[in-house]
């Protein structure tokens, strides 16, 4: 193959990450510190996700990478090629064929199944960080289960905007214990966090790993009179006519024309292959 160790990282680093993953699975939602390594890509480009993927990958895996739902952005293509070269694993763009999926900021539309593993790239793992800058304080707040500040923040959203304005990285409570940042996925994806797949979260710059075992209870924070609502653009995809998928709004020209398309490219392409056509596709 080449002169890299399997999946790039050295064995001792993988053991350290593997131990952190096991502790993360044993305490769902708790952020386990780990000794994040320099990777051949800048922090902020998914170094945490890449290290978790490298630690869990086996030679028999089929690997998929999405960046905000898309298989063909620079970030997704680079990471896919990285593991093709350093681990020699098969890669795919089809959600249902993948055994390990690394994702930046989306959960695939196609429901995941038992046996699949979803690896999230996380920029800021600490849900309380923008409310309390001190790590010493946030750690204390997690240990005392002191999450009043988060509810104050959501309440201030309501008093200012009339609704909870948080649209992505919407905080969740895991098994009634830890408040967790689900990474900057749209809140449309929050209900999918309760999944039969194993979900692992890696934050490289912030040196944290956390995890959700399958079927873990994940509740989006809300109030009785302002319940959580998973929303999306009120439109259908103009390529595949899907009206239940999360949509991106794309600017088409300088005259202000816009179109909505599925953010999940594999979902959209498979629907079009099955004969579904949106208004844009029908016009062509």
């Amino acid at each position: 193959m080449n002169s890299y160790n399997f999946a790039y990282l050295d064995e001792q680093t993988k053991r350290m990450i593997r131990r952190a993953i096991l502790k993360g699975l044993a305490v769902p939602g708790y952020q386990v510190p780990f000794a994040s390594r320099e990777m051949p890509m800048p922090y902020g480009w998914g170094t945490g996700g890449v290290q978790v993927s490298a630690a869990i990958m086996t030679p028999a895996d089929r690997f998929k990478v999405i960046d905000q739902g898309s298989d063909d952005t620079t970030n997704a293509v680079s990471i896919r090629r990285f593991f093709e070269r350093t681990a020699g694993v098969e890669v795919t763009e089809t959600t249902t064929e993948a055994t390990v999926i690394q994702t930046r900021h989306r959960i695939p539309e196609m429901p995941l199944t038992s046996g699949q593993i979803l690896v999230y790239q996380v920029p800021i793992p600490e849900p309380l960080r923008f409310l309390e800058p001190s790590e010493v304080e946030t750690r204390k707040m997690h240990s005392l289960e002191e999450y009043g500040l988060m509810h104050v923040k959501l309440y201030e959203d309501i008093s200012q905007h009339g609704a909870i304005a948080t649209a992505y990285a919407y905080p969740v409570k895991v098994e009634g214990r830890y408040v967790m940042d689900p990474s900057p996925i749209p809140k449309f994806d929050n209900p999918k966090l309760e999944s039969p797949a194993i979900q692992l979260f890696g934050a490289g710059r912030e040196q944290r790993i956390y995890a959700l075992p399958p079927h873990t209870r994940v509740v989006s924070l809300d109030f009785e009179d302002f319940p959580f609502e998973a929303n999306k653009a009120d439109a259908a995809c103009e390529l595949c006519a899907a009206d239940t998928s999360y949509l991106d709004e794309v600017i088409m020209d300088d005259a202000g024309h816009r179109m909505f398309v599925c953010s999940d490219t594999d979902f959209c392409a498979s629907r079009r292959a099955a004969g579904h056509a949106g208004i844009q596709e029908a016009a062509i």
Partner: peptide, 17 residues
Amino acid sequence: PHAAAIAFRGAMRAMAM
């Protein structure tokens, strides 16, 4: 590298489920 990766997958699945 290969054997440890495969063994870890088993251990991780056991701990996750």
